[in-house]
Each structure stands twice: as structure tokens, then as C-alpha cells.
Simulated assay, not measured.
Amino acid sequence: MGTPHELGKSLNISTSYTTDPDEALAALQTDAVTTGRLPHAVRRSLDDLPPEANLDPPDGVEIGTARDDHKLVRLSAGDGWLALSIRENDGNASLTVTAATPELAAKVVQDVLGEIPEIDHGPDRVPMGFWYHSTDSGAHRSVRPITALSWEEIRGNYSAPAAGAFARLMSHQPGSSSGRLILLHGPPGTGKTTALRTLAREWRSWCQVDNVLDPDELFLRTGYLMEVTLGEEAENKGRWRLLLLEDCDELIRGEAKAASGQALSRLLNLTDGLLGHGRDVIVAITTNEDLARLHPAVARPGRCLAQIEVGPLGGEETARWLAANGMPDDAVTAPATLAELIAVRDGQGLDGERTAHSPGMYL
């Protein structure tokens, strides 16, 4: 199989191909695959990597490193394997091991992963993935911890019907329902995103939560859709996935089929068609549209795990919210959204009637 130095020996790389040292290191590993010396590869994406984590396999020999303003690339070799680690400044990383046998490649990866400590973010911090598509380099996923309150802490932000529906959703367990779509609809500023953050916290023991920043691109690009829904299957075996698609009014309103082409069909296929069959994926969508304006296929019986109208708080509910937040319970007498109540709490006031306030990204 060759010694570590023989496996990592230099290639004659033309400067017309690359002048970047990190690409040269990757080319050394690629050459070992294409020539058949090390034909088996295992790759793992690592999210929110602890600063002290070591990505060097035990008993490896360093072949070379390359560093720029954004990442550190390291190539090392051992008996019958090469390992390329790419560590981004934002805490994300990847490890690719090529080896003479698939068993050896898997073992080297596991040796590295077994030494990486887990980060304890505490009860109020939840890791969330953020997907986006780049025209130049395709699909990307970055993980960040987000702040999320417990359900009991935010229950008072919602009207009685919405709170009851959310309580059932928060206690949902995998496999207990056939529906794969969560539909939250209602005016801006009523707390739809707040509820989704809390849902990520309540489900974190069994579900990975990812926010797709460009849902319009997701359903227009087949490769992007497949990467998001299938691309990290091996790393998440046994865990469900919740994909968050916010403000998808154009995708799911009544005329969406004509306006969006195949986008709506792919969404429906993901939730209960062939694409979603056998995949432990749940899709949560928020929209400001009224339910009557949505495409009937989206809300048909059996498709939705939950369909929740998130509206303003009524008079008594508003009074309770104000009292719970240390304010006179008659500071607002009309129904109000969560955004409006927060505005009052923060001293902006409603001048005796409901007015539009920016809900912010967290509502």
C-alpha cells in the first residue's frame, strides 16, 4: 500500500490548473483515488467544531498544510490512507479519508470523531443549520447555536386555540403521525418564528433542525434539493430532520402551480410523495397569507402534521400578557399581535389603536 510519504508524494500539477496550495493538497488525495492506490473514500461534515478539537488522525504523518484568511487545510497520511481536513474559521469543517479498503477509511474517520468533545450549549442554546445555494460552489450548510426559550416560557404569547395546537406539536414524537408538513399562517408579528425556535429546542433530542435561507432556489434546483434532503444521511442516521421554510407565500398560495412551475410539485413530493417516502424529513412553512388563499393541495387532510393559525391575542389574553410582563393590564384594550405588545412594553405605544410595527426577524 505504500508508506505515508509514498502515499503523499508530489504530483506534477500544472500552474494552469491551480496556484492555490490548498487545492494542490486536495489534488494529491484525488490522485490517490483516480490511480487506484486508495480507491475508497469516506467524508464527514463537522458543524460547530470546538476550538480545541483535533482533526489529525492518530499515528498520521503530516504531508502539508495551507492556511488563508478563511480556513486551514491539512493533509496527513498513514499506513494505507490519506486524510484531508478543511477547517473553516466559522467552526465548520470537513474530513475526507481515502484508503485501501472501505473498512480502513471508516476506521480512520471514527478514530478522529471519537476524540472530538461535544459542546454543551446549555438549555437555552440550540444548534441550527442554515442552508443556502451559491451559483459558484453549490449548496452550503453552516451551523450556529440559536437562543430558544422553552414552550412554557412562550405559551402566553399565543391565543388559546394556537397555544393548544402548539402544545400538541411540541410534545410530538417521531413516527406518531403520517403528516410531514407543518403550516403556520397568520399576520406578520404574531410569533411564528418564535414558535419554530422553541420547537427546535423541544425536539432537539431526536430531530436536526435546518433553516433554508432561499426556499425559492431549493425547489427550483433539483441538485440543491437532493443535497439538502439526502446529502448528509450517513451523519444523521437515526435522527429526523426539520426543514424550516419561512415566508413562502408565493410558493403555496392558490395560483402557485401556474406561477412556480415545478416548485410546488416538488414541495408536495417531499412531504408525502416518492421523494419523501422513507425519508425522516418534516417541512415547516410559515406564511402571512390567509388559509383560504393557499393552494388546496398544501392543506389537504393527511398532509399536515399541524396546521396552525397564529393570530393576535384577544382582550383578556392581551391583559394577561401585559400583567405577566410587569405592565398595567389595561395598557392595551384591543386585540394585539405579539409584535405590538412588545412595542408597548418597550415604550413605543399604540396611541389608542392597533398600528403596524416591525415584527423583527424573531417573530
Rank of each mutant, 00 (worst) to 15 (best):
N12T: 14
S16L: 07
T19Y: 03
L28D: 01
D31T: 10
D31P: 03
T34M: 04
G36Q: 00
H40F: 15
A41N: 04
A41G: 03
S45Q: 11
D48Q: 13
P50N: 05
P50A: 09
T65P: 11
D69F: 15
G78P: 15
G80H: 08
W81A: 02
A83H: 05
R87I: 08
G91N: 10
G91H: 09
A99R: 00
A99K: 01
P102Y: 07
V112A: 09
D124E: 13
R125T: 12
P145C: 03
I146W: 08
S150N: 12
W151K: 07
E153G: 05
A163C: 06
S177T: 10
P187N: 09
P187Y: 01
R197Y: 10
W203R: 02
C207F: 00
E217D: 11
L220Q: 15
G223V: 04
L225T: 11
L225H: 11
L230H: 12
G231C: 09
E232W: 00
W240A: 14
G254T: 14
S265N: 09
N269G: 14
D272A: 12
T286G: 13
T287Q: 13
V298E: 11
V298N: 11
G302L: 04
R303S: 11
P312H: 07
E317C: 00
E317R: 01
T318Y: 09
A334F: 08
P335G: 00
T337E: 05
A339W: 00
V344M: 00
G349P: 12
G349M: 10
R354K: 13
A356Q: 09
